[in-house]
């Protein structure tokens, strides 16, 4: 098949659009998760969404909706659990993560007839995205960007220091939770296309690369999204040509981009040499 022939297939075009939309949203929420120092939350949310989808399959309810409900609920539990138990955020998140993984695997065990669906939610397949997925993804990107534009002062305050934001009367809890709910929405919407396990990588890796390259939050959003989009599109093309699994290819490409960004983080290398 000739390279350009791919564009004749509407499933491929949909996958391409999904790459761009999913890349932008994952790139942005990755920045939040990195700067709020809650890396495990991405893992917990994606596993909660996955567990939710399994529950949906088992009970015969829409798995994406069920995944969304699980994801939001678990995201909203993180802070209260941490406060009650006086444990650090990351510890309550890993507790939640283990719980969700337990539920997911319990239900997978009970779901003997649904192997294909189970794997679909685990790895996802961007090539199976429907127009419906595209519309929902577009909505997610619009919500994300509007939220950043409208709330950028509040977001800046909590990314800097949640305690200071709360102390000076900025509605820190509200912004933090809206931010988590939006992130949960993005994660569950991409359950089909990117998959519950792979989406975490697409949240964590591009933002970590962007973090190497800039000292400005706005630029970090852009670079992070760009790296996620490039990983998705490159992964899509490479896997189409080589018949490798698309999700895995995307993640490996984003890892290569991360390593490249570390190498090119000249400013930091320079500073290390001068001062240490």
């Amino acid at each position: 098949m000739e390279f350009l022939d791919f564009f004749n297939y509407s499933f491929f075009n949909r996958a391409l659009i999904m790459s761009i939309l999913g890349g932008i949203s994952c790139g942005i929420i990755g920045v939040w998760i990195l700067l709020l120092n809650i890396p495990f939350i991405g893992v917990a949310m994606s596993h909660a969404a996955f567990a939710g989808a399994m529950t949906g399959l088992l009970l015969g309810i829409n798995p994406v909706l069920c995944g969304f409900i699980f994801c939001v609920t678990s995201a909203l539990f993180i802070d209260p659990v941490a406060e009650k138990t006086k444990l650090h955020n990351n510890i309550s998140i890993s507790l939640l993560f283990s719980f969700m993984l337990g539920i997911a695997f319990l239900f997978i065990g009970m779901l003997k007839d649904y192997r294909a669906e189970v794997l679909g939610f685990m790895w996802g397949n961007i090539l199976t995205a429907s127009w419906n997925d595209v519309i929902l993804s577009t909505a997610a990107v619009i919500i994300l960007i509007s939220f950043i534009i409208i709330f950028h002062k509040g977001i800046l305050a909590i990314l800097f220091n949640r305690e200071i934001a709360r102390a000076c009367g900025i509605p820190e809890k509200l912004i933090f939770y809206v931010l988590l709910i939006i992130s949960s929405t993005v994660v569950s919407l991409h359950l089909h296309s990117i998959g519950g396990l792979l989406i975490y990588s697409l949240i964590a890796i591009p933002s970590a690369s962007a973090y190497q390259l800039t000292y400005r939050t706005g630029t970090m959003y852009v670079i992070s999204s760009l790296i996620a989009v490039i990983s998705c599109i490159a992964g899509l093309f490479i896997s189409s040509v080589t018949a490798l699994p698309v999700g895995a290819t995307i993640i490996l490409i984003s890892c290569v981009l991360f390593l490249t960004s570390v190498l090119f983080s000249k400013k930091r290398n320079y500073e290390k040499k001068t001062f240490f």
Partner: peptide
């Protein structure tokens, strides 16, 4: 942290005027 001194000072204004 990708946040500048100017931005941190502006958090004081966000507190005074609302976000």
């Amino acid at each position: 942290l990708p946040i500048s001194v100017k931005e941190v000072i502006s958090i004081g204004l966000s507190s005074k005027y609302g976000i």
